[in-house]
Design a protein around this nucleic acid. Sequence first.
RNA 1: GCUCCUGUGGUGUAGUCCGGCUAAGCAUACUGCCCUCUCAAGGCAGUGAUCCCGGGUUCAAAUCCCGGCGGGAGCACCA
Length: 511
Amino acid sequence: MNAIPLDKQKSELESSFPELLTAKPRQDRKGLPMLEGAEHGKVVTRFPPEPNGYPHIGHAKAAIIDEEYARMYGGRLIFRFDDTNPENERLEYYAAIKVGLDWLGVRYDAVKNTSDDMELIYKKAEELILAGHAYVCTCSKESISKNRREMIECKCRAGDLDQNTKRWHKMFEKFKPGEAIVRYRGDMHSDNTVMRDPTLMRIIDEQHPLHKDRYRVWPNYDFAVAIEDSMDGVTHAFRTKEYELRNEIYYEILDKLGMRKPRVLEFSRLEFEGMPVSKRVLKPLVQEGRVSGYDDPRLPTLEALKRRGIVPEAIRKFVLSLSFTKSDTLAPFEKLESFNRKIIDSTSPRLFISVEPAKLIVKNNTMKEVEVQNHPQTDLGSRRIQLDGSFYISGMDARSLNEGDEVRLLELYNVRITKKGTPMEAEITGMDFKSEIPKIQWVPAQNAVKIEVLVPKILFVGDQFNENSLEVQEAFTEPHYLELNVGTEIQFIRYGYCRKDSASQAIYTHK
RNA sequence: GCUCCUGUGGUGUAGUCCGGCUAAGCAUACUGCCCUCUCAAGGCAGUGAUCCCGGGUUCAAAUCCCGGCGGGAGCACCA
């Protein structure tokens, strides 16, 4: 063990080897970790979604990281639709993803579609075939899959150049979908199963949303991404961890083609607990009507988050707080809420609400009107509330009050409960603010506005759909609610933040 | 099964490459106090991690080495 005390070591070092004591430049970093091989002004990143669904929190993470790095190094961000499978892609998804990005405030320097580069991709495929790095395989899907598992090379692999070129041309005309694919000549004995002669091109006859039936031979992901990234000048390509095994094929394709190689880096996937992101799970939910649509506030889609009252700045801060790691994360939704709350607090007008309304009659009320500030700190104006002595208070408060209790109706006066029951009765005991008695919010009964508050809960418990994932609370609020625009974030005092969804409906954002 | 990735408080992370400055920083959550005509926001304080486990190297290890164990992903003519 260390027998000599530290300070003694230090003083001895100082006299003998002063140079050892100068601390290494280990500084704390702020924001995302530095990028290797990043030169200021020369970094190019890309956000390459497939337009096959609505954008969600996972897209947000990717796009924000892509953009942050581009900005950090004074570089460029390319927004590219990886639309190489007409079976999945639809025009509305292109639009939805773009709308989502814009809402997030992600600014890109260029937009493009992989499908616009088909001629180039064909050229590259042909180049690989001609050089013997790829071949056309006409085996059945089943036998290909079996051979890959068992590391068996099929007879197509042995075909000569003449056969491959002929078959390649036939793919554009005669072959039917499934009858022939272009395969990369990898290594059927590789430990990395991805390298066992992966597919490069295949035939799909579905109409492409942009190009209709102009093409029917389409590249698959590994091939298209490598070519596109390289051609687009991407220097740093980020993707989620599940693609990690595909790095080998990515680099090898570019190597064989003599093309420039971007750096590929992986980060962990972002998903909230009980809020699945996959189309496989979401689609049936929407179709079966278990959620109202892709903007159902229980969903992790961008539209849903927006409708729920989460603001883009909060999402960005949240994503950045997760940093850039490969470790599996169970994302803390409450942290997103915390960022959100801090951002919206100063701009959210305060309003009174009565959930599970309970009537309260103040017998000796003589006040006709009261003026209340819309926010305790920031100047959001004020509102006038008409009074006639009858109120709704929240059921929870009503239950906890007993005869003889004194309580302050916020911004109004103090009352003593004279009768518990329905309605509850009370009488004014004074106007002066007393800090020691409980303070409760109220809604004037005479022109109370009836609303429903949708409270989103966790959607899945384990892999089980939560039948009680959406609670609907009946409530009354002040008439001023009607004057606010749809989309306004409100803080209902002593209840929580909600976003106005319509004249009769609000969505609970968070506490 | 094979291959790859990953493992720091309840949660998310910083620090790990280049061992000492930190027996571990920040955020979130929770608790208390202050402020406040809200159970919000703001201010302050506190609880909470021997850095998955076991060896080893070293004067010194979360950080290096070896061996375990846990978690995740991939093994498609989807991306």
